[in-house]
Structure formats: C-alpha cells, structure tokens
Design a binder for these strands. Structure first.
Lengths: 155, 155
DNA sequence: GCGAATCTTCAGAAGTTTCTGAACACTTCT
DNA sequence: AGAAGTGTTCAGAAACTTCTGAAGATTCGC
C-alpha cells in the first residue's frame, strides 16, 4: 500500500467522522482502509498491518462491517486468505441503518400513546412524535430510491 | 406526577431508544421526562425527583438539551425555579442534527479525493461517497420542509 | 493426514464515558 | 443584608466499552 502521509491522515480523520455517525472506533478505521486502499480487495492481514492493530481486533470489526452490509467477502480465488471489499451500496446501507432507529422511535411513541389518555398533555406530545417518525419512515425509502435511479444511468 | 408503572416503563424504554439515536444516556432520560410528564412545563427539581438522580446530572443534561434546541427555557413567571418544556419542533431538530454528520462525511470524502489520482481505485470509491452525501445534504432540508408544510394546516 | 498460515474467540487490561456529591454561586424574599 | 431555595461546577468513583494477546479452530497445500 503506497499511500502518502497525507492520505493516511485523511483516512484517520474520515474514520473519526464515521465514529460520529455511529460506527465503533475500530470498525470505522477498518472501513477507512477499504475506502483508501489502492487495491481492489483487501485481506485481514493487510488491514492489521495498515492500522497496526491485533488480528483479533480486525476480525471483530470485519465481522461487524459484514453484518451491516458495508463490505462483502469475495469468492476466494484459491488463496488461503479471505478477500473483502467495500460494497457498491455501502453508503445507502449505512444511511438506512438509521431507519432502524426511526422504527424504534415510532414504536416507542406508540407504546407511550397507549399509556396516556387524550386529555393528558403527554398524549399530544407523543402523538406529534409518532406523526413525525411515521412521516420519516415513509419518506426515507423514497429518498433512497431516487438516489438509486439517479445512479443507474451513470453505470 | 401521577404516572403509572406502565408509563414509567414506557418512558425508560423510550429513553434507551433515544440513546441509540445518539443522545447521551442522561440527556435521553431527561427528554423522556419532558415527553411523558402530565404538566405543561417541568423544573430541574422535578426531573431529579422523577429520575432519582443528582441535581448535578440534571443540570448537565438540561444544558445539553437546550444547546441542541430540543427544549426551551420559559420566561420565568416570578418563581425561583426555572421552567422548561419540550419544543414543538424537537423531532425535526433531532433529525437535523444528523445533518452535521452528513456534512462532515462530505468534507472527509472531498479531502480524500484530493489526495488521490484519477487512476487510483480509491478515487472512484471516494467520489461515489461524495456524490451520495452531496445528494443527501440537498434532499434532507427539502424533506423537512415538506414535513413543516404538512403540519401547517393542522394547527 | 500433517504442518503452516489464517481466522476466531474470549478473559482481562486499558481507556473512556457517565454519574455523584459536595462546595460554590446566584436569586428571591423578607 | 441575611437566609433559604435553586442551579452550576468539578474531582473522583463507578460503570461501561474497546483492544489486546494468547489459545484454539479452521482451512489449504502437500
């Protein structure tokens, strides 16, 4: 990996930002490697070297990135090492994972509404909350669909 | 505050969900009090009683909720205690705070692009990332605006 | 089937975040 | 101006999260 200092810094800074976005620290650094590598695919060993961390850490973060669908394991080309790469729809996937939170918020609001009577001010507040997240839950898939459509012609 | 066990549980569960969404634990529990209280406004003392935590904790979380615009301090009606309440646009505000992360991601991608040449695979990946977040940054305000418009006639 | 390379798991160390409690500061009332 | 009620700050305690390193499991080539 022939990256410059500048590139390494940019990668680490991007990793910090990803952390803000909800990823764990190690998973974020690993994802940054996937983004910045000049190879098409990466192995766990390369990630560990690049970040200077233990194989155990890499194993854990690769597993979590796989489970949320940000990276994919490639059909092994006869090598002993597994090869991985960033998925094309990684960013949409990352964004969509917030959908889960929206869904939970909606459910929480509905539960709350059930515990209150219509005259309780809490009832009004919770209804407002529910309406908002209901709206979002409906709109976010539409938004992502528009993104996909916009991407299609460019491929 | 005459809430039932059921209500208390719903509030605590909602607080946990808010934590998933990025709020700190104590701030999330405090926000849940604002949602579930049967009063129009709340004081710090009431929050501390309700949650069974120290005044110091409440002071900190109220401060942070104020700073992100989820609650507001009311013009004190001659009382010694300050009164606070949930803002009407709290949910839109909470959602918008993710905008900040989007903006940071966009900036990180752009920095990365600057450190790569067009032939580097990293260049392609970073460009894809940039395009996605650029799209989102443009669309989210539109989305929230549509929400506001939908709310208008209902008031 | 054996040995070497790679990957996984997990207990404990290290680091980080969060909460408390006590001291201090401010406000209001008398 | 003093007293009582509130709010703020901060050092340290407690709780939680994350990383490592070593042992075990798996896979591949011979």
């Amino acid at each position: 990996m022939n990256d410059t200092d500048e590139q390494w810094q940019a990668a680490e800074r991007l990793a910090l930002t990803l952390t803000e976005g909800g990823l764990q620290r190690m998973a974020a650094r690993t994802l940054a490697v996937f983004l910045f590598t000049d190879a098409e695919t990466v192995t766990m060993g390369e990630i560990a070297d690049r970040l200077g961390v233990s194989a155990g850490s890499v194993s854990g973060s690769v597993k979590s990135l796989l489970s949320v669908g940000l990276i994919e394991r490639l059909p092994a080309p006869g090598s002993r090492r597994e090869h991985y790469r960033l998925r094309d729809d990684a960013w949409a996937t990352l964004f969509t994972s917030q959908n889960t939170v929206v869904r939970l918020m909606l459910a929480a609001a509905e539960t709350g509404i059930d515990t209150t009577t219509a005259s309780d001010p809490a009832h009004r507040r919770l209804t407002q909350m529910r309406d908002f997240y209901q709206f979002m839950l409906k709109e976010i898939p539409t938004l992502l669909q528009r993104w996909q459509e916009r991407q299609q012609p460019l491929r």
